[in-house]
Design a protein around this nucleic acid. Structure first.
Lengths: 212, 212
DNA sequence: GACAACATACATACATGAATGTATTTTAAA
DNA sequence: TTTAAAATACATTCATGTATGTATGTTGTC
């Protein structure tokens, strides 16, 4: 967690220091949001966790929703984008590389503690009613993009004969999306119930077993 | 939505009328919770939706958490129990009956509007931080019970030779749980993105395709 | 390069509303 | 008569947003 420089209070910061403050607030927000839940988290708690006052928070952000959306933009969408990129940069056996990419990706959820917190925040610690609805609508676009990339994988596999032609790529895409989502949800909700690192290879072996 | 009998306000009700009032409050709570989200919903809104005052609400329930837990007990856990029962009452080809049961179950999510609202409420419209944490802990037990029933299915299939012996029933159970969860989440979050009624058979055909 | 003029980056103080919980009252059922 | 099932009234808390203060960074000007 970033902590702003120990200037005696109420001294004007330089541009870089201000940027640091902004980041500290965002990081503090992740902590407070995941601990209290977005709805129950107060700006006072976030400010305190970032070692600033609510004044600083209101300087950098309009309100709680604005903070959440900033996090959403900076963390969630890049995550999906990263996923898309990872999918596009594979060119050998499509299904095999897709499989190992999936395993790698969900394993990161267990290994990368920060990713885990952030995903938990967006998937578990908030509901997208009210002012947060717009965030969800934005991710829908990103998800459709993701689905299109996935589809191409299955199509490529079909054209190479690795995948039976009578299976619908759209269906497989939907199935895989649901599967990944379910794994993430079940793990985040109860991380002690199973180890992704151990189970992910088995799980995706089940999903990607002989298709033709 | 139940509406209590049109007695001129402030008349004492009979026991049955009181029970009706309680139910009206619970039904109103489902509506308000799903529309506003549990955190943003107020007791005033719930009372108004049930055609009573906050006084009635506080007579029947301690607070908002108490209402939520009552709903949780009356709706969510029976749903899981129903699932367990449905699984136990099949005795022919285990995998085939498991498959059709899965299809039936998720299809209900699209067809049964009330089920949809309730599931949406518990899966999407609340976060289980703070006072709602206990609810989540309770479902964890129910889920483990569900998993054990599922496991037995795969074990039975193995003993009958329908399922390769080198596949771990535990893994298959986890996979199926995640898959179902993911389907429910994706659909509830964006019901327009696909039709469960059309896709469920295809999806579970993918999952349950030749195992041996 | 010094200095005024201004903008920036906050902290502090305050006003407000909204939701909650409780205390009191009302009416009729038991 | 007592008590259940509410309605009504009230006090309190709490988070929010905003207004204001303030000291310093920044920038144009000479």
């Amino acid at each position: 967690m970033l902590s702003i420089s120990p200037k005696s209070q109420n001294m004007r910061r330089t541009k870089e220091e201000a940027e640091q403050t902004r980041n500290a607030i965002l990081e503090a927000a992740v902590d407070v949001f995941t601990e209290k839940g977005v709805a129950r988290a107060t700006l006072e708690q976030i400010a305190k966790a970032a070692n600033v006052t609510r004044g600083a928070v209101y300087w950098h952000f309009k309100n709680k929703t604005d903070i959440f959306m900033a996090l959403h933009d900076e963390l969630h969408r890049p995550f999906i984008q990263d996923l898309v990129d990872g999918l596009e940069n594979t060119d050998d056996d499509p299904l095999e590389s897709l499989k190992s990419y999936c395993i790698e990706m969900v394993t990161r959820i267990e290994d990368d503690l920060y990713l885990r917190r952030v995903l938990s925040l967006f998937l578990l610690k908030c509901d997208y009613t009210g002012s947060l609805q717009v965030c969800q609508e934005r991710t829908i676009d990103a998800r459709r993009e993701k689905s299109e990339v996935l589809s191409k994988f299955f199509e490529k596999a079909q054209s190479r004969g690795t995948l039976s032609a009578d299976l619908d790529p759209k269906t497989l895409t939907l199935a895989l999306s649901c599967f990944i989502r379910g794994i993430a949800m079940e793990y985040l909700e109860n991380p002690d119930s199973f180890s992704i690192r151990e189970e992910a290879p088995k799980l995706f072996n089940v999903f990607f077993r002989k298709w033709n």
